[in-house]
């Protein structure tokens, strides 16, 4: 027993990868152990993945920049529109369309960054909300993207027609997005971001160009959100204004809050709970939106780190006050593993 604990203690980096790897293994096995893969793979699996990636770009900004952006869905949607226009309007192939979509989404994120760079906190939240509403109103009217009718059909490329292939394609993008976020966070750039988040004035005094860092962080998050757009557009087979509506924006926000607004990996748990609620809540209640709202509020009141943070709270409940030092270390290790340890509780509240 003791040797196991020592091993954990000596291999923290390894351990911090343990849970993501377990989740990945379960995700790979997922299509093979469910009863109705034709339904579960697209409606739960693939949708969880793209909601999760879009939410990940939101939690990344919140965790490393302290900014809550409501424009991430608009970025995903513009990437989806980029792909849809390339394929439907111009008849281009998917391997040309995807880079176009990523470029459109990332470019939009850069523009959003330029517009919003001077705002923080609640102002940033509202300006990004306004930007996403501008985009919604614009695509609803714009003839080039076929207004409210939207662009359809966006057919999946040949090699993705098989649903499982598409699922693993989506999963590969999710893994890439996750690794990219963790990699960026571990670079000097990522560490400076956290410094800026905690005390922008001090970092400014140290000679950091805070605006420049913010710009690149928002643009990077935009790239992540654009990745979600690829999966979304092929999953939905169309790009229409609904994907950038207020409801879609709030859906991703709910996913982020359920998973934990400071957790990079928790978004997939949030996405899973959300898609399950979305598909099955109506089977046992007429007021599924009220149910979602109540869960949302309860989580914010009692588990601000989301469902992934509940694990920590559980340990807080069962941990005996007289636990040994070794157990305490285990706790620290597990904390890192659930990917929430370094995120300081947002509020200085009590």
């Amino acid at each position: 027993m003791k040797s196991v604990i020592t091993w954990f203690r000596n291999n923290r980096v390894l351990v911090s990868w343990l849970i993501p790897v377990i989740v990945l293994v379960v995700a790979i096995a997922f299509p093979y152990f469910i009863m109705k893969p034709k339904f579960w793979v697209p409606n739960i699996g693939i949708k969880t993945i793209w909601l999760g990636i879009s939410a990940m770009s939101l939690t990344f900004l919140n965790r490393y920049l302290g900014l809550l952006s409501l424009a991430q869905v608009a970025v995903s949607a513009m990437s989806a529109y980029g792909i849809a226009s390339a394929m439907v309007t111009f008849g281009l192939d998917w391997y040309i369309a995807i880079p176009i979509g990523l470029a459109v989404g990332t470019l939009l994120a850069a523009i959003i960054a330029i517009i919003s760079i001077r705002t923080v906190a609640i102002y940033f939240l509202m300006i990004t909300l306004a930007i996403s509403q501008v985009i919604y109103s614009w695509v609803s009217q714009e003839v080039f993207v076929n207004g409210r009718r939207g662009l359809a059909p966006v057919r999946r490329p040949e090699f993705l027609l098989e649903m499982n292939n598409f699922y693993f394609f989506a999963l590969a993008i999710a893994v890439f997005a996750y690794l990219a976020c963790r990699y960026v966070a571990s670079t000097p750039f990522g560490l400076s971001l956290e410094g800026i988040k905690d005390s922008p004035d001090r970092m400014r005094a140290l000679g950091y160009s805070v605006s420049k860092y913010r710009f690149w962080a928002i643009t990077f998050a935009g790239f992540i959100a654009s990745l979600a757009g690829i999966i979304m557009v092929f999953d939905r087979a169309q790009a229409d204004p609904d994907i950038v509506s207020l409801n879609s924006t709030l859906d991703v926000l709910i996913v982020a809050v359920l998973g934990g607004v400071t957790s990079i990996g928790g978004v997939f748990l949030g996405g899973l709970v959300f898609t399950l609620l979305d598909n099955f809540a109506s089977d046992f209640t007429d007021r599924s939106m009220t149910l979602t709202g109540v869960i949302f509020v309860l989580i914010l009141l009692f588990a601000p780190k989301g469902l992934t943070g509940v694990w920590e709270q559980l340990k807080g409940v069962f941990k005996k006050p007289s636990s040994s030092g070794a157990a305490k270390d285990l706790k620290t290790i597990a904390k890192e593993a659930v990917d929430t340890s370094s995120a300081k509780t947002k509020g200085k509240n009590q």
Partner: peptide, 9 residues
Amino acid sequence: SRLLPVMAI
């Protein structure tokens, strides 16, 4: 009070 939310969830 920590137990409560955990149970609810």
